[in-house]
């Protein structure tokens, strides 16, 4: 049914888009993490994690900046392989 909702939904107001896009970009601006610094940090984090946790595939680690209601988060997701 998703596509039906999509069909009938009003076009999103541009001011809402502006607000959302700004809030997202400002999370990055405020912590001063440019995309390449993020990549570098991710590589270093992956190396540290791989050192301590054997069943991690460093390529699957994801580091993201997420906007929250009251505080923002720097999130690292580290999938673990289920081998005993």
């Amino acid at each position: 049914m998703g596509f039906l909702n999509g069909l009938f939904r009003k076009r999103e107001r541009s001011s809402d888009l502006a607000r959302e896009r700004l809030l997202t970009v400002l999370v990055h601006d405020r912590v001063k993490l440019t995309p390449d610094v993020m990549e570098q940090m991710k590589a270093e984090l992956s190396a540290v994690i791989a050192k301590y946790v054997p069943n991690v595939d460093p390529d699957t680690i994801e580091v993201t900046l997420a906007r929250g209601d009251s505080i923002d988060h720097l999130k690292a997701e580290v999938p673990l392989r289920r081998n005993r």
Partner: peptide
Amino acid sequence: MMKAGEMMSIEDVLQI
């Protein structure tokens, strides 16, 4: 434009 939702509202800017 603000009323039509085509410009960010005053509240939006202050909150951001």
